[in-house]
Design a protein around this nucleic acid. Structure first.
Length: 113
DNA sequence: TATATGACCATAT
DNA sequence: TATATGGCCATAT
């Protein structure tokens, strides 16, 4: 279980999550794609689960590709996720981000490389 | 060691 | 357009 990788991917995910600008949101697949593993979007979600240990990682800005707050149930209070998003100027209705494409922030497109 | 599950995404029918 | 299935990698049991 101690492979040379794994932690790097994990760390990279958290790094991109921290780079997510305030008032913007990104998706698991976008991060995974930026890391070079578009099929490993699940691992991003797994990393986010562990990211709860890192207060500087805005996991609430990471949602699925349709802007649905699938992971809100993993927050201390599930309402905290959409609550933070609303606090950043993002409208959330029915656990879903309104005009998601408008707030969507793609590291591959913004950071490019 | 093997099986099942997961904060997903894309393709196929 | 909606539903079903495959894939991908790591964790947990």
């Amino acid at each position: 279980m101690n492979n040379s990788k794994g932690q790097d991917f994990f760390k990279d995910v958290l790094d991109v999550a921290r780079l997510t600008p305030k008032g913007r949101v990104t998706s698991y697949g976008a991060i995974a794609k930026y890391l070079g593993a578009p099929k490993s979007s699940r691992m991003v979600g797994w990393a986010m689960n562990k990211a709860h240990q890192f207060p500087d990682v805005p996991a609430h800005r990471v949602v699925n590709r349709i802007g649905l707050l699938t992971g809100k149930m993993h927050f201390s209070p599930p309402e905290l996720m959409e609550g933070r998003l609303k606090g950043e100027g993002i409208t959330v209705v029915n656990d879903k981000i309104v005009e998601f494409k408008r707030y969507f922030w793609d590291p591959t497109d913004e950071l490019e490389l």
